[in-house]
Design a protein around this nucleic acid. Sequence first.
DNA 1: GTAGATCTAAACATCC
DNA 2: TGGATGTTTAGATCTA
Length: 685
Amino acid sequence: MMQESGTETKSNGSAIQNGSSSGNHLLECGTLREARSNGEAPAVDLGAADLTHVQQQQQQQQALQVARQLLLQQQQQQQQQQQQQQVSGLKSPKRNDKQPALQVPVSVAMMTPQVITPQQMQQILQQQVLSPQQLQVLLQQQQALMLQQQLQEFYKKQQEQLQLQLLQQQHAGKQPKEQQQVATQQLAFQQQLLQMQQLQQQHLLSLQRQGLLTIQPGQPALPLQPLAQGMIPTELQQLWKEVTSAHTAEETTGNSHSSLDLTTTCVSSSAPSKTSLIMNPHASTNGQLSVHTPKRESLSHEEHPHSHPLYGHGVCKWPGCEAVCEDFPSFLKHLNSEHALDDRSTAQCRVQMQVVQQLELQLAKDKERLQAMMTHLHVKSTEPKAAPQPLNLVSSVTLSKSASEASPQSLPHTPTTPTAPLTPVTQGPSVITTTNMHTVGPIRRRYSDKYNVPISSDIAQNQEFYKNAEVRPPFTYASLIRQAILESPEKQLTLNEIYNWFTRMFAYFRRNAATWKNAVRHNLSLHKCFVRVENVKGAVWTVDEVEFQKRRPQKISGNPSLIKNMQSSHAYCTPLNAALQASMAENSIPLYTTASMGNPTLGNLASAIREELNGAMEHTNSNESDSSPGRSPMQAVHPVHVKEEPLDPEEAEGPLSLVTTTANHSPDFDHDRDYEDEPVNEDME
DNA sequence: GTAGATCTAAACATCC
DNA sequence: TGGATGTTTAGATCTA
């Protein structure tokens, strides 16, 4: 359109195109990645984590004390019962019924405050102040506490049943044979109690081994034995079933590994029918927990002989294990020997289930929040697209202004343009909003051009995001092509390699290939900053940085107050960053807060603001001296490009020309950006 | 309102 | 001949 002549090719170097036609801008400035990576958030998290750790220890100690009290009570109670059984069998039924009922609830009431409520857990998860390890510890602790509760409750029930049985036996008759039967039954109960003692002791010891229960040095050993008195294996199984019912409900019928199979350690003499499923050894299909695993393990992994979720890189991935297994058979051997069905493995499995459940809860909550956000922001959707469109990071940038000015034919905006201002969209880079999630097709603005976000740092920070989310990168084709070329080792790419870079780096460009490929070719041909070079491989494309930097600059919105505020707040960048991070955490955007994933929203906003400020500062510095140490890398590499390269007349005469802007020192000047801030050397070298 | 920048689409030419 | 590559043009949209 703007070209004067299309007859000249760029490769001959004599093409004189309209200067304005090559005016793609890349308003990139010095990166502040280092500053961004030096946020205070880790310190804050660390403090919170330490505090939480201390609280965990306190809670564990409290739980331990409560458990001791419970055990003492149970011991006393059991002794009384035994004495009663031995001395006289005639007791009032009322008294027998009331006794446990009076004791156990007190115990439970004492235990309850020690357990973190789901809401509190959710809050902890939301605040993201705990590391995964700390979360795991917390969950383990909660698991232990919940287990204690369940044990106590079940112990109460069992006591009631036991006493009821004894009463029935005593009231049944006083014939000698029956008395012998009663005595035999009592003996059987005693044996069961003994077994339960051992089982409970083993379980608590295993919990203690894992850190689920902590016993501080110097404290007397737990009176473990009385805890188990009065319980029978089937009841314990029922307890386990109850505890794990919430989890197993989500699982398929063939995946009943969460149930504790006690058949190998307990002799059940009175298993209720309802526990038959658990008692059935075939019900446990998970080889990891079953003692019958070897054959099943080998069978289940026949198709993938060396693929096992618990085995990788020669290491057992069982939580907390990390045992080195040279090969898969040795791993299986290790798995079956070290992680067979026992209390420890079961507890670890349940902890893992708890972790998964919490994560699922968190996911569900975040999904709900996202839905609410989308609902809130999508109120004025009057023209929903039939097919979902890829995300576009930039639509919201123009939303605030263009919403009121959008012409009727500006369809890309109208569907999502809210009449009432949403959260004020300030001068910031791409803010992923639900508006653009829903709609947007071709949206023009590219925040890199407007807000000077370095494309290299943005792509680096949000690499995973761009790769996985179908989000349109907020950069122009020219910027992206240039970035692709500069990322290459030889600073030159064939067209196909450019294509590959696009598809590799951005999920967005894995669709509508014809469109964007055409645009790439179009940009390569249109902009004279892209130079086609013939070599042995064929034609490759390179970047002429001189031409690229010569492109006509744009200025950000000439809002003096904004610029002034930005400058005046320069000293508060760190608190701002902290606030932004807090805001991100508050808004549950944890996955992209780190450099590994990057945050395409607030993180870039912060970086954009900082870079704006730094750009202004460096801008001033560069005016003072070209050899100033504060010069940006771009200046160091291409000092001549901006300062000495003659500008096209129409560029020079414009109010945005570099000559004009470099004379500005006032904070109220039109915030024109020369391109000295662009970290070209970072990109190129 | 206008110029410039950008994007999309398309036509056309050339080369392999 | 078809696809890839490269060039050019046109129109639409958005911003300054």
